[in-house]
């Protein structure tokens, strides 16, 4: 209490307390969570690698120029050693360099696919949750369809169709770009459902009525009053979506549908699979790289959700 009665002769002390923003409080909570901190640093570390990897890699990870193969001197199926910390690939590339370069691919695919999903999912969710009625009915049925489509089969069909030039607009894109688009296009349904539910909940609150009574238009209400209040759950789910997209890209690459001109963790696992009995590290090292990043992203997402959960009580 900053309040004192005037008995002491002093005027009441009205010390304006500094406002603590919600995100500062959340960050304070995350800082107290060891696992979340480790995860956060690991994700940051991966982001740094994705940006600065050309500075750290000793060998070109993806040159297919004739004569390049085995020119690094490691030979095919090299065991990890001081010169090649992660060994060399079946065709003689430095796996360490490829892993670092693959970080960029994985993160970019994850980020952009999620961005597409978030834009579609948020738009669908806000409209369905705010207008309710038939708008919600139609949008939710479409969402249901996207939730039930067998992702892998649809992805493979679309990938093949686009590559064959059957969708002229997209024919100039590289395989990895097409994969990003497909992942984004199939990933929004779960988010749309969540945003719909949250939007409905928020738009039933009294302050939305109050703003409507002031005479604000729907667009203003949705963008200024509803969206910021469903943003936290969107952010949390996006973190999980990034992890999922990275995993799916790796899965496609593992099945042999990756981009042959791009180095990706999935491709590395796929390449190392052939001689798994003799050279397990060829598949395990990139496998664990994927595992740790996705795990860190999921743990961090969980931690953010926990930090937000007991609704901002001081």
């Amino acid at each position: 209490m900053t309040y004192e009665t005037k008995t002491s002769g002093a005027t009441p002390t009205l010390k304006p307390k500094k406002s603590k923003s919600e995100w500062v409080i959340v960050f304070d909570r995350i800082k107290r969570n060891q696992i979340a901190l480790v995860s956060m640093y690991y994700i940051l570390f991966n982001i740094m690698i994705a940006i600065f990897f050309p500075l750290f890699i000793p060998y070109d990870p993806k040159s297919y120029a004739p004569g390049d193969i085995q020119r690094f001197g490691g030979g095919a199926y090299g065991r990890p050693n001081l010169k090649f910390p992660a060994g060399t690939s079946p065709v003689g590339f430095d796996v360490y360099s490829q892993l670092l370069a693959g970080t960029e691919t994985s993160l970019l695919v994850g980020l952009f696919a999620t961005l597409i999903s978030v834009i579609i999912g948020t738009a669908v969710g806000l409209l369905a949750g705010y207008y309710k009625g038939w708008v919600e009915e139609v949008l939710m049925r479409i969402t249901d369809i996207f939730l039930t489509l067998p992702f892998l089969i649809m992805a493979l069909i679309l990938l093949a169709a686009i590559k064959n030039g059957e969708v002229p607009v997209l024919s100039n894109l590289s395989t990895i770009q097409i994969i990003t688009l497909i992942l984004g296009f199939f990933g929004w349904a779960g988010l749309a459902r969540l945003v719909t539910a949250n939007t409905k909940q928020v738009s039933n609150l009294e302050y939305i009525d109050a703003i409507r009574l002031i005479g604000a238009r729907d667009r203003r209400i949705i963008l200024i009053h509803v969206l910021p209040n469903v943003l936290t759950s969107i952010i949390i789910l996006s973190a999980l979506l990034i992890g999922g997209a990275i995993l799916s890209e790796a899965g496609l690459a593992f099945l042999g549908f990756g981009d042959p001109t791009t180095v990706s963790w999935g491709t590395l696992v796929s390449n190392g699979r052939a001689q798994f009995n003799s050279y397990p590290e060829q598949a395990l090292i990139p496998g664990f790289t994927i595992f740790f990043l996705v795990l860190a992203i999921n743990l961090f997402g969980d931690a953010v959700r926990d930090a937000l959960d007991p609704k901002l009580k001081e």
Binding site: E206, I211, I214, A216, P228, N229, L312
Partner: peptide
């Protein structure tokens, strides 16, 4: 209208000045 629930009738993410300025801006 004045609402019942003091906890749900204000947008938690807007400062008081924004909440009070909004009607003046719209009208």
């Amino acid at each position: 209208m004045v609402f019942q629930d003091p906890y749900n009738s204000l947008n938690p993410r807007r400062m008081v000045k924004d909440t009070l300025m909004e009607p003046l801006m719209i009208h």
